[in-house]
Design a protein around this nucleic acid. Structure first.
Lengths: 228, 228
DNA sequence: GCCAGCGGTGACAGTCATGTCAGCTCGTCA
DNA sequence: TGACGAGCTGACATGACTGTCACCGCTGGC
């Protein structure tokens, strides 16, 4: 997944090439190929800022990155940042929000293709790990680093928990799950488990083979860890 | 549990009464009763700073609290803060460290009293909730808010995971647990679950009765959620 | 070919947390 | 009783991040 600039545009993807910044007052609008329309150039700049934000926030977290740094990394001047976002929290929120939507979309879709609870749980675990593998920066933004506290962090976890909750309620209705488990607590537990395991694993995927992580995540949720 | 000032001293507990601060250059060393020895006064001040830090960090997190605020809340001057800690990160680390030790001590002790895996899991869940109920500030410091990233957060979760890992390895040895589950992944999963559920519940304990949370936490870990 | 304005520039002023330090008080000890 | 020093005080210097704004160049429309 790539963070996109508003109304879906082709992005610059990672590693923005620094173009030779203003000598005095002049400023080439774009390095190499020039943009066709002005609006397009604007979107490209926005996309660069989003991409740079994802990288830097992923590396160092919200508080250890400045708006000027993001601008520099994106190859634009400090003031340009504020042409696109009112401050770094807004940028952060935008990145987290897009990442969350995408992750949630994938999880829902994995869920939709599953015939029963067992399949759904396994499919979600796999989806989660795939996402983590392809989007380490975003995983760190969503799960491990400090969010802009309440605002974003709560929304991420609550959104995911809500989605788990719905699935589980359906499972209870289908009598696939014993009703004495409180699904609200369970939803929080599952989300917490996801967040921690994914952050742990994404930090260093050689820690455990993907299959083992999927297997363990699935078993914990379905069969527990006690044989009796 | 109360955060203590180094070598275990009786603390001021919460809510530090603001004493009338310096009019010009004067400064009464202590409101009301005076301390006997100088060293004792020093420890009391340190304890006040620790207590105030716990309250403020718990309320607002590391980044939204300044060292001057902590000093003010503790009823001392800004400079005094630096007589005790080199900066707020050190104070934060100290608080988190003490809280972690205490929580870990209780969990280990709950574990020690248990005859088998089932009892151990249940006892830990209860211990965790009790701790959360009595120490909401500390729970927020340990689990929900941003830690000083890598430094503290990782240590908290790793320490707890380590403790779970040992228990589970013992359980595998006693053949109380199927060996095809990767205990390292499981340990991370359990810790993530704890962190999330406890933070969620401590935020508003009326969300679910304590017993329901304990029950659900225990069942997930032992029996899973699938009846078949 | 001309010009309007979009998008970008970067120096700069404002704000705020930080950590310091000279000076003060009071308890302790000779 | 005198004075020494531990501990505290709070104004202040510092530095970092923030957000602004006057200005500029390019591009597209006429």
């Amino acid at each position: 997944m790539t963070v996109t600039a508003g109304t879906g545009t082709s992005p610059p993807s990672e590693s923005i090439e620094r173009r030779p910044l203003g000598d005095g007052r002049s400023s080439p609008v774009d390095a190499g190929r020039r943009r066709k329309s002005a609006g397009e150039a604007r979107l490209a700049t926005r996309a660069r800022l989003l991409a740079s934000g994802a990288v830097l926030f992923g590396e160092r977290g919200l508080h250890r990155v400045t708006s000027h740094e993001i601008a520099a990394h994106a190859g634009v001047a400090a003031g340009t940042f504020y042409n696109h976002f009112s401050d770094k929290h807004e940028l952060f929120g935008e990145i987290a929000s897009q990442a969350l939507s995408e992750l949630n979309r994938r999880l829902e879709s994995a869920n939709a293709g599953a015939a029963n609870l067992r399949e759904a749980v396994r499919a979600r675990s796999e989806t989660l790990l795939d996402f983590a593998q392809d989007n380490r920066d975003l995983i760190r933004i969503l799960f491990s680093r400090e969010m802009d506290t309440a605002a974003v962090q709560a929304r991420v976890l609550e959104t995911l928990a809500q989605s788990v909750l719905e699935e589980r309620r359906a499972a209870i209705a289908r009598e696939e799950m014993p009703p004495e488990i409180d699904p609200r607590v369970l939803a929080q537990a599952v989300v917490g488990m996801w967040a921690r395991v994914v952050a742990w694993w994404a930090e260093d995927p050689t820690r455990a083979p993907r299959a083992a992580v999927v297997e363990t995540l699935t078993r914990i949720q379905l069969d527990g860890t006690h044989p009796a």
